[in-house]
Write a protein that binds this DNA or RNA. Structure first.
Lengths: 233, 233
DNA sequence: CCCTTTTCACCTAGGTGGTAAGAT
DNA sequence: ATCTTACCACCTAGGTGAAAAGGG
């Protein structure tokens, strides 16, 4: 679907106010989201799967833009994966699917387990093709496949630093490169942000929900080595 | 070594007239050049080895530059590899090494064999990071490892089109992106070209000089599978 | 005969989750 | 007990020259 734009769509520069972004692989993102998406974080940095990619429109073909992403905590909680009190209260319906039978073997779910860790420094990831003309960005799908997530607070590779067992919402920003002298004064008018709820996820160092693992293996080409039976193209 | 700049260094824009480029892997290029460098061309496109890479200096850190390469015919001849008339006249000393013994088994060499084919359309290869600031270009070695050579006159992948069995001189160009309105009128002032004689080569569809093959195998990591004996790091 | 094309085994380079050991 | 790390086999993706087949 098309993203809801950030607050305050008024007062935006003409170069960004008509910008629109469609999330690619939307059905795959929704399939993960229904199970409660998990993303691995490692010391060396791990890519996201699905990859965050968008199709852009509404840019000025001749203007320069910078594209970037950041990740904001979805709440101030820390989570753990396990068996709750039988299903009352702590289960987060949005996060885990309603199991077909509440007493089935696989009935674990995400439980709030205290307040969030101190937030890591809020890094951003610039799309490596930035800056580029609007025409270039709109020509084809923009893929953030170089973006990596890490749990290393001291990371010096420029990766996105996240806390494991915390929930995050990826955000996507289109920034018009203002050629005017005192462009800093208009910075707040020169960008537009997009947030796709179906891309939210739990950062983990190892997968907790086995259904997530299975869906990753089934849909990520690099995990083909772990597929069992007959394929389905 | 440092490149000789193109003719007419006078009248250049301040943003390019101090630009300098040092060829990287110079000793490897020279080793190939002493044997007579050959570069494979294929229908699908083949990378160069050694890769053309330079270290830049003298750019304006804050100005925008485009970096690109093209290839110019070194002469108007077509060549063939074989046995000459005993060593008189047709042997090109620069192209093949003086064999230790003129009557040794490996005494073939490049011989002129008629006039050149009609020149293919003179394509150029823009470095994919173009345009970028001078500071960015000077930060580290600029590598043209995405450049591919093809002999397909109908190529639509944007590769460099060359005629097999013809000699070429790679050229490297630094172009200042002039922000002025009528910048086209200053185009001839806004670039500086570099030509390294040790990078000239013969385009081939299959290696002719067995010593070139051996040196490629010995020095190209992707050809490690063809190395025989003990390695030498 | 000489040159080109195709296919292939063998590499580099790097993205997967599994697994077992380590850390707290 | 729970989470993290390091290493691994197994993939994708693509760059090598060898060898055989193709073409004029």
């Amino acid at each position: 679907g098309w993203a809801g734009e950030g607050p305050g769509a008024s007062g935006k520069n003409q170069r960004v106010c008509h910008a629109a972004a469609r999330l690619e692989m939307g059905s795959l993102w929704e399939e993960f989201n229904r199970l409660g998406t998990e993303m691995i974080v490692t010391k060396a940095g791990r890519r996201m799967f699905p990859t965050f990619q968008v199709k852009l429109s509404g840019l000025d073909p001749l203007a320069d833009y910078v594209l970037l992403m950041d990740f904001i905590p979805l709440d101030d909680k820390r989570y753990r994966w396990g068996w709750g009190d039988g299903g009352r209260g702590l289960n987060l319906g949005v996060l885990s699917p309603s199991p077909p039978c509440r007493y089935a073997f696989h009935s674990s779910s995400w439980l709030a387990a205290g307040r969030a860790e101190p937030a890591a420094p809020g890094r951003v990831h610039f799309h490596p093709d930035s800056p580029a003309k609007g025409a270039q960005w709109m020509r084809q799908i923009v893929s953030f496949d170089k973006l990596k997530l890490t749990n290393n607070l001291l990371d010096d590779n420029g990766h996105i630093i996240l806390n494991s067992m915390h929930r995050y919402q990826p955000r996507f920003h289109v920034v018009f490169v203002d050629p005017r002298r005192d462009s800093e004064r208009f910075a707040h008018q020169n960008f537009k942000s997009f947030s796709f709820p179906e891309t939210q996820f739990m950062a983990v160092t190892a997968y907790q929900n086995h259904r997530i693992t299975q869906l990753k293996i089934a849909s990520n080409p690099f995990a083909k080595g772990f597929r069992d039976g007959d394929p389905e193209p």
